[in-house]
Structure formats: structure tokens, C-alpha cells
Amino acid sequence: MQHSTLKIEKVATILKLLGDKTRLTMVKLLEKNDCCVCEFVEIFEISQPAISQHIRKLKDAGIVKETRRGQWVFYSLIKDHDMYPLIQHILQHLPEQDDKLKELEEKGLRISCCE
């Protein structure tokens, strides 16, 4: 009984996190790409502290991890997370977000701060 209650709580937490449009889009972008905060700032056109707050919530839930490359920090999905199959199932119902990254590339902003 205890186990199923914990599972429901975990699922509810994930759904609550992904219930936010910005975080949901971030996770969809991270499904195929590692991204840096600066890229999210450009894509969502919101402040760096706001982006960092979204990322912190995803990190605290164990959905996203960070990897340091030089002075830059990149974020990626943790695909061995026990809730990843649920996340993956949700993501497959979403439109691709690759155009957002292509747009950044065309503007010369894709990982431009990170080179």
C-alpha cells in the first residue's frame, strides 16, 4: 500500500512540474539536445534567473542533470530516472521543438556563449 502511494506522489510531482508550459517545452528540447541556460533565455525570452528557477525545479525532481564544459553548464535529461518512461510518453504527444534551436542557429546564438 505504501509503495503505490509513493508512486502516485511521484507521478503527481512530475505532472505538476510538466504542467508548466515553459518547463514542458524545456524538457521537450532536452529530449534530443543538451542546452545551456543562455539558449533557454533566448528561446523563451525570459530572464536568466527565471530560467534558472525552472531548471532548479527540474533538477530537484531528478529529471535534469548538469554537465560542466569549461565555464559553461549544459543541461540534459536523466534518461535512467524511474519516471522517464512516463516523461517520454508525455513528450511523444508534443510537437517537435527543433525549429526553436534552428532559429537560434540562424541568429548565430546556438551555444554562441558557450564556445
Rank of each mutant, 00 (worst) to 15 (best):
E45Q: 15
I78K: 08
E45T: 10
K102C: 03
K65I: 13
K21R: 13
L86T: 08
A12N: 13
I8V: 13
Q2R: 14
G108V: 03
G19L: 09
D99W: 01
D80S: 13
L94N: 10
I51D: 03
S47I: 05
R69N: 10
E103G: 01
T5V: 12
C114H: 00
G108Y: 03
I46D: 00
M26C: 09
Q53N: 14
V41H: 03
K100T: 07
K7Q: 10
M1R: 14
Q53W: 10
L30F: 06
P95I: 05
V37P: 00
R56N: 11
K65D: 10
L17H: 02
T13M: 11
D98Q: 12
K65C: 06
L58D: 08
I51V: 15
Y75G: 01
E66L: 07
K21C: 01
F44C: 01
A50D: 10
T13D: 13
M26I: 15
E66C: 05
D99E: 15
R69F: 08
K32F: 06
I63C: 00
P85Y: 02
W72K: 09
P95H: 01
Q71P: 03
E106V: 04
I63V: 15
K102S: 12
C114P: 05
L77I: 14
K102P: 04
Q53I: 06
Q48I: 06
L77N: 04
L101D: 01
Q48S: 12
V41Q: 03
V73N: 08
Y84P: 01
V27I: 13
D99V: 08
V64H: 02
E31K: 11
V11Q: 09
K16N: 14
M83E: 15
L17T: 05
R68P: 07
Q53K: 15
L6V: 07
K57Q: 15
K107M: 10
V73M: 04
E103W: 08
I14G: 00
I87P: 02
Q92P: 02
R23Q: 06
P85W: 04
E42D: 15
D34N: 11
T5N: 11
I43L: 02
L18C: 04
A50Y: 06
V41K: 08
C38M: 09
L94Q: 15
V11F: 06
Q97C: 10
C113I: 01
E96C: 01
I14M: 07
D82H: 12
T67H: 11
L104S: 05
V41E: 13
H54M: 06
L15M: 13
I55K: 00
K16G: 08
L15Q: 09
T5K: 12
H54N: 15
L101C: 01
Q2S: 14
V11A: 09
I8C: 06
Q92V: 14
V64S: 05
E96A: 10
V41R: 02
K102A: 07
T25I: 11
E42N: 12
K21D: 13
Y75W: 10
H54Q: 15
I14N: 03
L6M: 08
R23K: 14
T67M: 12
K32S: 11
G62V: 02
H3A: 12
T13V: 09
A12V: 07
K102R: 13
K79T: 15
